[in-house]
Write a protein that binds this DNA or RNA. Sequence first.
DNA 1: ATGCCTGTTCTACC
DNA 2: CGGTAGAACAGGCA
Length: 267
Amino acid sequence: MPELIEAEAYARAARQAVGSVIEHFVVNDPSWVRGGLSGQDVGAALDGTIITEVDRVGKVVVVQTDGPSVALRFGMTGRLLWDGDGPIDALIYGPKRADEAWVRCAFRLRAPDGTRHRLAVEDARRLGSLELDADLSQLGPDAARLTIETLAGALGNSRTPLKAALLDQRRVAGLGNLLCDETLWRVGLHPARPAGSLDPPELSALCATISEVLADLGRRGGSHTGDLQPQRRPGGVCPRDSASLLRRQVGGRTTWWCPQHQPPSPG
DNA sequence: ATGCCTGTTCTACC
DNA sequence: CGGTAGAACAGGCA
């Protein structure tokens, strides 16, 4: 939402605002607000509060204040802007430029040293949202803090396709389409394997690979920097063994995998 | 110009 | 109940 890696980068950027007072919270696009509040309601609830903390839960960035919290979901093309800086990531399919017309909401801030700043959310496609005091209790364990046990619990005995289960934020929070394809490719698991069919070695390898992918792609700078990514296109081949990649919808999303080392059944 | 896209949520259906 | 498919949201981009 982008995905966990981008949400983490946004949260880090937003932490520059901790300690600042929200002089005014601007809602440019009322349809971006969830929970039945108007833009005025949101402003009234937030204006004058102080930002105390910024958290990330899965793909959601939560700005805590001494009043309500603000949950930011970024949809497919949402990005965070700090002052005049450009977007703090470059989405591979999103717009390359920044545009004031895409700013859906913004914090107008005054820091303790008196300087003024703006933390703005830009979202060309408007699939993101903001919500005050959002209930995030339905989210599964965070993908960045998975253990073999919590992963096993998330997959359960489900016969749903493995990738669909990993994409389901109620099971595991933070993974999106690109991170899932990269992870399953690296670990050698077929995306349509029944989620509950993994044996202990496979579970443990999957857990380790999720951590590795998050760390690795995080270092490289985004969910779009995977080894598989350049081949997720017609004619793409497996970077490991050169087999032609297969493509199909799994869990409602376009999925690419290698027929050679991601076999449909165990083994 | 047609189709595709780092996401979520709803309905219909099996 | 568990699960799947499709649509809807929306707009830039190749």
